[in-house]
Design a protein around this nucleic acid. Structure first.
Lengths: 186, 186
DNA sequence: AATGACTAAATGCATCTGCATGGAATAGTC
DNA sequence: GACTATTCCATGCAGATGCATTTAGTCATT
């Protein structure tokens, strides 16, 4: 078990010495766009770091484990094809394969044979897996509240969502407002 | 030289079965905050991936190299203490050390002795380093425009900045609107 | 000037990642 | 049915990362 930290600092540098024949010519990308890019990189990095650190301090495995466990637990039968997990999580194939290895090693999931397609398999979440997912949500949700919820009004959070969605092909579900729901984080 | 991809999928799952004695009790974190968290993780990942891929396809090294080269090139003397680079880039100490190794290996920077503090050293950007930084900015800026600038009006980009800054302790410079400027991306 | 606390930077080690490839089963084509 | 293309998953390998430690130099106190 080990923490992942995604630390990366993006810098964007203008070289203003070229172009500008006329005074009305706009810079591309605009100052605003560049600033937004920078903020997006920096803030995400910081917030993710902070959340991962909190989880880690609470003795939990990386968030990726949570994501996988959640995805599995939400499947009606508690099992998924690796290929589906891969698509849900948007991580590369080999990454999924190894993540499953680790979950299985820790007894959080089990590999099961797939009879209809013998190339494939099913990954089934275990009771221990379900329990870990639930326990992690306690720490995870607290971290989200601490690093995001408490800094933004609901209205502003919604605005942020809207703006971000325009960058990312919206890429996800918007959680239905009822019970036992989940929202995918990338 | 090798690309880094920061792929990570965050999922946040509510377990709605507890709490709610009264109908007025608000969920913490709120649905909006959770959705914002998810978008932040997902969109950043996608946009960063896309930009890194473009750079890679153009035959350039990872963005981290660019960040370091920009930082060095902006230093008045073209040199910086590793510890300063570390602080600017917000990456861990060992990471800085090894990044410098690679830059030096490729002839993009050079280590120089620091006379006033013999523990330390200076890292100086070379001509090749300056040139690479400039050439990378061509591809980099195009990617920012493609994945951010073109998707958002300047006003919306500015709004996004403002909202993100509230999450991240503002963590950065806002580029002065004149020439030869740069904005730090995390 | 000796001690101890602290800072700058490098590095050993285990793990993780990306990439490319591999094998095995299925689907499509003639 | 033989051939090829495609899909599903695993894995070898090289490089990158995180963590802890080491080495070396500085500073403060006495």
């Amino acid at each position: 078990m080990q923490m992942h930290r995604v630390r990366y600092n993006r810098r964007a540098g203008y070289d203003e010495t070229s172009t500008y024949k006329t005074g009305t010519m706009k810079r591309r990308p605009s100052t605003e766009a560049t600033a937004a890019w920078i903020r997006l990189m920096r803030v995400q990095s910081r917030v993710l770091d902070a959340v991962e650190q909190d989880l880690k301090k609470a003795g939990f495995p990386p968030l990726a484990w949570y994501d996988a466990l959640l995805e599995l637990s939400r499947a009606p039968t508690g099992e998924l094809r690796p290929v589906e997990l891969e698509r849900q999580m948007l991580i590369p194939q080999y990454s999924t394969s190894r993540l499953i290895d680790r979950l299985v090693e820790e007894g959080l999931a089990a590999r099961r044979e797939c009879k209809v397609d013998k190339r494939g398999q099913f990954v089934e979440i275990t009771e221990a897996g379900r329990e870990l997912q639930k326990r992690m949500w306690g720490a995870y949700s607290a971290a989200i509240e601490k690093y995001v919820g408490s800094k933004l009004s609901d209205a502003d959070a919604a605005k942020l969502c809207g703006l971000l969605d325009r960058l990312g092909c919206s890429c996800g579900e918007m959680a239905p407002p009822a019970t036992s729901e989940a929202a995918s984080a990338r």
